[in-house]
Computed example of a mutant assay.
Amino acid sequence: MTNQEILAQFGPREAMEYDVVVVGGGPGGLATAIRLKQLATEKGKDISVVVLEKGSEPGAHILSGAIMDPQALTELFPKWKEMGAPLNQPVTDDAWSFLGETSGFRTPNFLLPECAQNHGNYIISLGALTRWLAEQAENLGVEIFPGFAAAEVLYNDDGSVRGVATGNMGVGKDGEPTENFQLGMELLAKYTVFAEGARGHLGKQLIA
Rank of each mutant, 00 (worst) to 15 (best):
S103D: 13
G84C: 04
L73R: 02
L76M: 11
I124Y: 04
N121H: 09
E82V: 11
Q117G: 05
D93E: 11
G120Y: 01
F105I: 11
V91S: 07
L133F: 12
A151F: 06
F145Q: 12
T92H: 11
A151Y: 06
L87R: 02
A95Y: 08
A134D: 08
P108K: 14
F105K: 13
G100T: 08
P90Y: 04
D93A: 10
L87P: 15
Q136I: 00
G141D: 02
E138W: 05
M68T: 14
I67D: 08
H119P: 05
Y122V: 04
A151H: 03
T92F: 14
A85K: 04
P146N: 15
N118I: 03
G65E: 07
T107P: 06
G104H: 11
L87H: 01
A128Q: 09
Y122L: 15
F77M: 02
N118E: 01
V91M: 08
E143W: 04
A128F: 05
G65V: 03
N88S: 09
E82F: 05
Q117P: 10
K81P: 07
A150F: 11
P113D: 06
G141M: 03
E114C: 06
E114P: 10
L99N: 04
P90D: 08
P70C: 08
P78A: 07
A134S: 04
A116D: 05
W96A: 14
M83G: 04
E101M: 07
D69G: 07
W132L: 00
A150N: 08
N139T: 12
G147V: 02
A150Q: 09
E75Q: 14
A116R: 14
Y122R: 03
D93Y: 02
L112R: 04
F110E: 12
I67T: 05
N139Y: 02
W132Q: 07
L111P: 01
P90L: 00
N139A: 13
N139C: 02
N121C: 09
D94K: 03
P70L: 10
F148N: 12
W80L: 12
N109F: 15
C115V: 15
L129Y: 13
T74S: 07
G141A: 07
I124K: 04
T130D: 00
D69S: 10
A72L: 15
L133M: 11
C115P: 01
Q117V: 13
G104V: 11
L99A: 13
E143Q: 13
Y122F: 11
F105N: 11
G104M: 07
G147P: 06
P78N: 06
E138A: 14
L129A: 10
T107K: 13
L129R: 14
R131W: 03
F105W: 09
A66G: 01
G147L: 15
D94T: 05
E135N: 13
K81E: 10
A137L: 06
E114N: 01
T107N: 02
F110L: 15
F98V: 13
A134Y: 00
A116W: 02
A85S: 03
G147I: 01
L133K: 12
A72Q: 13
A151N: 08
E152I: 03
N121T: 14
L76Q: 11
W96E: 12
I67A: 12
L129S: 03
I123N: 03
K79A: 14
T74E: 06
E114M: 05
I144D: 07
N121L: 00
E82N: 05
N121E: 05
G147N: 15
I123Q: 01
L73G: 08
A137M: 00
G104I: 14
S97N: 11
L87C: 12
S97Q: 15
